[in-house]
């Protein structure tokens, strides 16, 4: 379980919107899906950054599995990112000179291999991207790269899947396919999902929706 108790990111302290996710007591329960909908500049990516341990500029308290993250060491964060949570960042963070498959497998090499090459190919097939697996990521379109980043996140172990505007460059059909795959695998692993977007998706239904 992840709890955010009256968290305010430092850059948002001046312009804090009244009914934000910020400065409230919010619980994210493992196994549940959460959609956070907000316009730009309201701190969607900041929330993912805080939960990934990438930034520490906030007031309030964040607890991950009942531990205050202020007390996390860099090694605790590394462990969390290796097996606790898996991310799709808004800027994707793929390696353009590695092939799509190498990108996916790199994450696997870091933690325990959890998906076989067959599984990865099957997932890629579901997302209609299998034929791009051997191409360098730098040569793929942003929408194709988004799907590779989703596959990379799915291929490593996680209790939480955190996706920052993962479908921004996908058409509704591909969005639907990707969301299905995400839900399927998250349910298999009894994992929680946090997904952010600018607008509500017509074909995505989450257990909880937090609108800012």
């Amino acid at each position: 379980m992840i709890t955010c108790s009256f968290v305010i990111p430092t850059p948002l302290q001046e312009i804090l919107p009244p009914e934000a996710i910020w400065n409230h007591d919010i619980k994210f329960v493992t196994g549940q899906t959460y959609q956070i909908i907000a316009p730009s500049g309201r701190g969607k990516s900041t929330l993912i950054g805080l939960l990934a341990g990438l930034r520490g500029d906030y007031s309030g308290q964040i607890h991950i599995n009942n531990r205050n993250t202020q007390q996390f060491t860099t090694q605790d964060w590394a462990n969390w990112r290796a097996t606790g949570a898996s991310f799709v960042f808004q800027d994707l963070r793929l390696f353009p000179n590695l092939t799509a498959l190498q990108n996916i497998q790199l994450a696997q090499n870091i933690s325990q291999p959890i998906a076989t090459i067959n599984a990865i190919e099957q997932w890629a097939n579901q997302l209609q991207i299998k034929h791009k697996l051997m191409q360098p990521c730098g040569e793929l379109s942003f929408g194709q790269q988004q799907r590779i980043a989703i596959l990379r996140a799915l291929a490593k172990p996680f209790q939480w899947l955190m996706l920052d505007e993962p479908f921004s460059h996908l058409d509704p059909n591909n969005t639907q396919l990707a969301w299905q795959l995400i839900l399927e695998i998250a349910q298999q692993r009894k994992a929680g999902v946090i997904i952010t977007s600018l607008n509500p998706y017509a074909n995505i239904l989450c257990d909880h929706t937090l609108s800012v």
């Binding site: 990438l54 860099t74 090694q75 590394a78 290796a82 390696f95 994450a107 870091i110 490593k156």
Partner: peptide, 15 residues
């Protein structure tokens, strides 16, 4: 960029 990304993927600074 590469190092930060590897850290984000779960590699520790020790590794």
């Amino acid at each position: 960029y590469e190092l930060e990304t590897l850290l984000r993927l779960g590699l520790s600074h020790h590794q």
